[in-house]
Design a protein around this nucleic acid. Sequence first.
DNA 1: ACGACCTTTCGGTGCCGACCGAACTTTCCC
DNA 2: GGGAAAGTTCGGTCGGCACCGAAAGGTCGT
Lengths: 230, 230
Amino acid sequence: MTTDVDLAAVARLIAEPARAAMLDALLSGEALAAGELARAGQVRPSTASGHLAQLVAGGLVEVAHSGRHRYFRLASPDVAHALEALGAISPPRPVRSLRQSRTDEAMTLARTCYDHLAGVVAVALVDAFVARSLLTAGGDGFTLTPAGAEALADAGIDIADARASRRAFARSCLDFTERRPHLAGALGAAVCAHVLAEGWFVRRAPGHRALRITDEGRRQLAKRWDITTP
Amino acid sequence: MTTDVDLAAVARLIAEPARAAMLDALLSGEALAAGELARAGQVRPSTASGHLAQLVAGGLVEVAHSGRHRYFRLASPDVAHALEALGAISPPRPVRSLRQSRTDEAMTLARTCYDHLAGVVAVALVDAFVARSLLTAGGDGFTLTPAGAEALADAGIDIADARASRRAFARSCLDFTERRPHLAGALGAAVCAHVLAEGWFVRRAPGHRALRITDEGRRQLAKRWDITTP
DNA sequence: ACGACCTTTCGGTGCCGACCGAACTTTCCC
DNA sequence: GGGAAAGTTCGGTCGGCACCGAAAGGTCGT
């Protein structure tokens, strides 16, 4: 493996405002169609098509054909991680509207970070796992204890499936609003998929990261994990 | 805090090959003068000056005046982290020369990663610390045990000073050649400063990350930590 | 005080790439 | 098969910005 990498080549792809907006939309973890991404980037479909071709050629994004649609998603968790790290040193954009400041508030509470949960709730959940010794903190992430494996399996999360994947099992990821780690990796993705499937949260808008917690979610979090939410 | 950040603004700064080369040079952790950075970016001083002004304005780089020189360094460990994360998804540059492939080999063995150690040796050192229970792995990093504090203080590392800094004390950082975590944060910086001061390693060239291990370093690593190096 | 050195400012040139509309391909639906 | 919808390709336009050289601003030696 070579140590001399072309930083500028990747940065150039992210540097274009339209492409950056597309990548931001893809950070929701969803696969989005070319047209939706054109809207996210506020450019015409023809322009978006060129951008997407570049992102695919650069290895940041993968594409899946489905009929007359083409669905794009981030190529790997590493890409999501790099985007998050870049976000941590990016200047905040001036708040434009009341609507945006409301979205901001919502995102602080709960959002997706690529394919796992982030925000106040995600950090609280990890804390609850650790406090109950279901998870222990480790150098490059977390370790699931036997008790943890049992508890999460009981809760309906497919641990075996998560272990089978080739991804890191239980990574930690720095929450960029809380500035504390939350659960990422295959296990983080499994937990996120489960709580969405169970209807604890719903996505506020397609292609956006913000999640709305449902009454059911509020109830379950309080009952199972003793987490109260505003 | 706002969640809507301008990814493109930071990426634009990194996207220029000359600026990327300068940032790469600064990843050595050293503060470098404008002229040295001009050479690193392979541009005229006048061009470099403009680039550096942009990097400072963008918050990626800080400047310190010293006589007729101006020394630049990365503004924060977060910047270094973002650059590393970006490096992990960047395409390798084609190997140009035998000389470069030798540098590559050297960097795989030992290098700086901003202000701490990276490479085979860094990972081996962390492993040794953990094996001796001087360090335990934690969710967002490591924890220094009482035995560890004593052992490292005995070795001549200023633990109190590292603890006093406002930085995270013992972070973990993914080594991008080894793909395993090594020690970062204030403690990582202290360890790196110590081994450089003691002459275990010397920098191969100013503004480059590669380190050469000295005979003294080889001896000490073998004696104190039972690490043998090729 | 003078020259040497490091760095920045300014004006002018040139190129890369983002953008759009129009035309074309592919797929779906009726 | 016809029409609509999604996406891509192509040609032409235009703006932003990296680049350099020349000259000026500071700072250090002697």
